[in-house]
Design a protein around this nucleic acid. Structure first.
Lengths: 262, 262
DNA sequence: CGGTGGTTTGAGCCGATTCAAACCTTGTGG
DNA sequence: CCACAAGGTTTGAATCGGCTCAAACCACCG
């Protein structure tokens, strides 16, 4: 179980090279994080609010509740990610934020964010790129919700979470998995009954083994193949100063010239 | 038909107060935008790329293509919005970008963006908040895709587009509507046949009238009521210096204290 | 005029839902 | 250490919303 500060620093560093000055600031945030029990609302949707949260430890879900009792989970956040950022643009929470496990969260008020912007531009750069990463993940979820059959939706969710856990060093063979089947249903736009059937099928084929609080992918390749999963969207490659990954002949297509029909 | 630069300036100004210095920079971008025909790919997904685009005029769609021939439109962009920003974090386009109408697009290479970041921080602030706005819209789409019946999905799409057009001054009673029914299906995760049926039903109830290139909402209220549409997510309220919209007694809930069970 | 791209319609079907009940597990208090 | 509650999982049978596929229709355009 890695140190929380390591997780946070590692995650931010995937998006920008942070000088010690910025890392210290992050460490200060991590230091003041407060614990929250599992399965609590951090805030409900529609709440007036100018605060966002840095998730230091644990998992949280951002979701919307519908009039008919339905629920759609919009995204899952792992340590090192921000939750409730939308408040900065709306002054209201557009969705609820709930903990899935026991967590530690550092609150960042709007005023403090303003100061952060001025004193720690590299952190803000990282936040900007993290925003793009999130958008890519949300897009992938939208593709699942709109165009993939139940089996693929669930496979994609499991593979994505496994990969994200692995990237942040939280996985050791088995992956921690605090979602209930109801949560999986609310992520994938399915019903709990059908989720159960699909999971049984995956288990029957020896591809996954989903215990109450942990997930084992017994044959991730087969799972990915059957579901058409490509992990590219989980691997941002920000333009680092020392990157130099362009191979000369590779024209970029900047500027607007001849475009293909359709 | 408003001036393109007005549209762009108006849109950016909804997110940040830009000094003339920044507005001039935007005007320079607008000035060099190049025209693209309708129904062309600006770039395909999987393309190596470090360029993003400012949409100056027209509509574009960002979408994903699936192996089975399916297609999911991830978002629609109207004048003043950016397209293909993800490239900045991935060096690859994760989705395709296609024009729906004749457009004008200004290409912004990664290097130029770096300079922009340094010389025009307010523009970058606006971009950050615009990113949050987009995320809110994407979240709303996810709710539709995951949890709303066909009728509501389509109603939400129409109402959202009408509102966005109105906000940017592009609507005059009727709303320009360059989407085909196939496009609507690809936005909502439905099939063209079913979209047609739902549209017929809406027309039959006297709620909407969808002509080839224009949309009239004859009874937007009834439509919104039936679909449970709330436009809040389309109205960001950034924390302007002169805002002062907090009414004293309104505590913010910053800090982590007692949280509701469940 | 013929072509092309978009719209409309029908009949049959299937993936996923609904609802209810039984079944497990885990934690709690007696 | 047992018994009970509570929350999560599993299963079945009936149903339905939305899909498939194919064909006709229509409007615009060169």
């Amino acid at each position: 179980m890695p140190d929380p500060m390591d997780l946070v620093a590692r995650r931010f560093s995937r998006f920008a090279d942070l000088p010690d000055h910025d890392l210290d600031r992050l460490a200060a945030l991590v230091g003041r994080a407060e614990p929250v029990e599992a399965r609590r609302m951090v805030f409900a949707e529609g709440r007036r609010c100018r605060t966002m949260y840095l998730l230091v430890e644990g998992w949280v879900a951002e979701h919307r509740l519908l009039a008919d009792g339905g629920r759609q989970i919009l995204r899952l956040r792992l340590p090192g990610e921000m939750a409730g950022v939308e408040c900065m643009a709306y002054g209201v929470s557009l969705h609820g934020v709930q903990t899935l496990t026991r967590c530690r969260l550092a609150a960042i008020a709007a005023d403090e964010f303003t100061v952060l912007r001025r004193d720690h531009p590299r952190i803000v750069d990282a936040l900007f790129l993290m925003g793009l990463f999130e958008r890519a993940v949300s897009s992938e979820w939208a593709v699942s919700l709109g165009r993939r059959p139940a089996w693929s939706r669930i496979a994609h969710l499991l593979l994505e979470l496994a990969e994200r856990c692995t990237l942040s060093g939280m996985a050791a063979g088995a992956i921690p998995f605090p979602l209930t089947q109801q949560d999986v249903a609310d992520c994938t736009g399915l019903t709990i009954g059908y989720v159960n059937r699909v999971l049984r099928d995956m288990r029957g084929r020896g591809m996954v083994d989903l215990q109450p609080h942990e997930l084992v992918l017994r044959d991730a390749d087969a799972l990915a193949r059957h579901a058409g999963f490509r992990a590219r969207y989980l691997h941002p490659a920000p333009d680092r100063p020392a990157a130099a990954d362009r191979d000369g002949a590779d024209r970029d297509g900047a500027g607007v010239t001849a475009f293909a029909r359709c």
